[in-house]
Simulated scan of single mutants.
Amino acid sequence: MARDLPAAEDFYAAVLGWVFRPTRLGEEFSVAFLDGTPVAGMGALAHSLKAPVAWTPYFAVDDADAAASRICERSATVAVGPLSFGTGRAALASDRDGAVFGIWQGQAIPDWSVGTDKAPAWLELRTRDAFDAAIFYAEVLDWACGQAGCCQVAYEDDHVVLRHYGNTVARITGGAIGEAPDPQVRPRWHVYFYVPDVEFAVRTAVKLGGSTVSPTEPSDADAWVTLSDPDGGLFTVTSRDPAAPPAGPGQSAEQPSRS
């Protein structure tokens, strides 16, 4: 969600090489493409919803109303919706620890899949208790349900790893602090985007008013750096394979990320 959609499009086009196209949802929405592949969606909603600028994952569900009911039944919050948007229904929610996410029922772009091709490399939930969060999302979103096409959940090296058809799509790490004033430390979903040249992406972001957030400096093929766009939206650029997501800034590979 962006405050100024054209300005946000210009920033991400320069930093990540995206091309934006309008959608059937109206002038306040666009879809980003990289080499013809859909990568992400952007909406000029932050101002109207009085919400912070942020990247928010939307998870596909068969029934948005039923999923919203499951969220509320488990002491989490549905902030907006479910509402009808174009070809489907959507809702914006937060889990029990305050991490914001969305749900989407309806037609989706067939090639839009995290962890494959040009799409986002992976998602990471930084939360208080990784195991407790995994149970919540599994119950709400039908993860590990045993049905064809559902996501598989595994507990590996103190992290919960989510895979879809063998592709690593998300990781849940524990140790976030709910009352922390720093948004990097509070529970939240975080997105990693592929770039061919991490150093170029960082230089371009800073030149256009963004900033580096992580202390990590790009130095090799596995470089990754967390950035903030000019309005405070946090994301990470990486050239690393999502099969082995990096630890957070200041953490060893064996420690949970807190940033």
Rank of each mutant, 00 (worst) to 15 (best):
A247M: 00
A54L: 00
F20H: 13
E199N: 12
V153A: 04
A67D: 13
V78I: 14
V161K: 13
F11V: 12
W122E: 11
L123T: 12
E27P: 09
P242K: 01
R203Q: 15
V198F: 02
P215M: 04
V185H: 07
Y192D: 14
R128C: 06
V153L: 08
A205N: 08
Q147L: 09
Y192M: 06
D63E: 02
L92G: 04
E27V: 12
D220W: 01
A138M: 11
G17Y: 13
A54H: 00
D62G: 07
T236A: 10
A108P: 01
E139N: 15
F85A: 13
A64W: 11
E73R: 13
A66P: 03
V53W: 00
V140S: 09
P230Y: 08
D220N: 14
A154R: 06
Y12V: 01
V53K: 00
T127V: 09
S219L: 01
A51S: 04
D142H: 10
V53S: 06
D132P: 00
E73W: 03
P22R: 12
S94H: 15
P120E: 14
A14D: 03
G81P: 12
W224E: 03
D62V: 00
T173H: 03
P230K: 08
A66H: 09
T238E: 14
R203K: 14
R70M: 02
T116R: 14
I172R: 01
V169S: 01
V114Q: 04
R240E: 11
P187T: 11
R24M: 04
I172S: 04
L141A: 13
A108K: 08
Q107F: 07
R171Y: 01
S75F: 12
I177T: 06
L123A: 12
G17V: 11
D65C: 00
V80A: 06
R163Y: 01
V185Q: 09
A180T: 00
D95P: 10
L16S: 11
D182S: 10
L141V: 13
S113Q: 09
A138D: 14
